[in-house]
Design a protein around this nucleic acid. Structure first.
Lengths: 227, 227
DNA sequence: GGTTGTTTGTGGACACCGTCCACTTTAACG
DNA sequence: CGTTAAAGTGGACGGTGTCCACAAACAACC
């Protein structure tokens, strides 16, 4: 045992024993989450397997238990990251619509951009999309030292962005204020349902053209529901 | 070994060796599916564990491989059974609405009954509902010697029942024929999305009252989308 | 009816997974 | 310095899906 140059007979150089504990402070935890995200991207929530994540980070399986209580807690962190990525894509899609907040046309386009970005993410990143909504029953969410500026920061969650788009629609005079309360849920349900049905669901084998038509007809249906 | 009245000394009776191969023809396969359905009912698709199913049937794990290529094929059969049960519950719900097929009021009530039964099944049998839509990528579906009377039998699948309800709505003069093609998909998406979001999704912790309100507002939204 | 061959169930084994335990090393702090 | 808590290691256990070779039960055929 001892220290120094002991062992290391052949080239595998399994544990230089000086490479241990050289990583910066939170690197292993962050690396495990990043590895889990890549696993989820490729294979959905079931593919985020603890041992494989530690392998990718280059650490022994048990090391994960210094950062997460169990596999579900790691999965919860990965789910949060996936949800954040969905939120980022939606924000990016909305930001490409120009025009003032209370302009009727722009407000409507922004709502459409939200739905489109949501469906696009589900289509292009099916593994991450499924993972975002595969939060385990325990470990509701993981607040990794969030700075809370008392509402100064905008809500980048999918539901938050949908809500502000609908509020803007009211301010623009497109949606009657009496119709506003609670509309986010039917709309969210419709978009989410189509994403699931055409993702892992029974509609997963439709070709691109049909899929585009399904998305279009859903958005039209939602628009009609808003008058 | 021998035959006749051997074995049956006490209740453990581990392997009387004459108890082998005493089950009727397709009993093991049917038993495995039934056991899988109960596992899915209690814990969703991930709870459909091959070894546990064989344990419930009282057979060794490898026996399952005489009836299914692998665990996914068993799961596919369980998914089909779960989907069939969903279809049965919907048909039962619809059948409780009386009135002729082309009566506007009855036709509308039937459509509502379809959505209500769908959401009710998802709420009361979350494990089976999730399993019905957890069909593995391979093994699309399993036709266990289906008799096909060339359309004489009615389609009891959820989508089939939704379609016939919408067709009846057209025949009753409630829905304009031009609006009919493709409407089933936005409607299905909305109902399915709410079922998923309030089931395993982020809305799973809402209380019964809120849940009822969500369902009601979704059905109103859909009704408005149909004029 | 006895032989033969195909189904169906058995026993044992393998690799992989999540998780627990005891141990050693590292980093931080007085 | 020395001490102590955190972080990583090694080895083990039970559980799972799956493969292989073998034996019993059935079906079929001459």
């Amino acid at each position: 045992m001892t220290i120094a140059g002991a062992g290391e007979t052949a080239e595998p150089a399994p544990k230089p024993d000086a490479e241990r504990r050289r990583r910066p402070r939170g690197a292993v935890r962050a690396g495990l989450i990043a590895a889990g995200v890549e696993l989820a991207r490729a294979g959905g929530p079931d593919a985020v397997v603890l041992r494989e994540a530690t392998r990718l980070v280059g650490v022994v399986p048990n090391a994960a238990y210094r950062h997460f209580a169990d596999r579900d807690e790691l999965l919860a962190a990965v789910c949060a990251a996936a949800m954040a990525e969905l939120g980022d894509r939606m924000a990016e899609g909305v930001s490409q619509v120009t025009g003032p907040r209370d302009d009727p046309n722009a407000a409507f386009l922004r709502l459409g951009a939200i739905g489109t970005a949501y469906l696009r993410f589900a289509r292009e990143e099916p593994g991450l999309f499924a993972t975002a909504y595969a939060v385990p029953d325990e470990h509701p969410y993981i607040p990794p030292s969030e700075e809370e500026d008392a509402g100064a920061v905008v809500d980048r969650s999918p539901l938050g962005q949908l809500r502000s788009a609908l509020d803007a629609l009211v301010d623009a005079g497109v949606l009657r204020p009496g119709e506003r309360p609670g509309v986010e849920y039917p709309i969210w349900s419709g978009v989410h349902g189509l994403a699931v049905l055409t993702g892992q669901g029974p509609l997963r084998d439709v070709d691109d053209e049909e899929r585009a038509q399904l998305e279009q007809s859903l958005l039209s249906f939602i628009a009609k529901g808003l008058e």
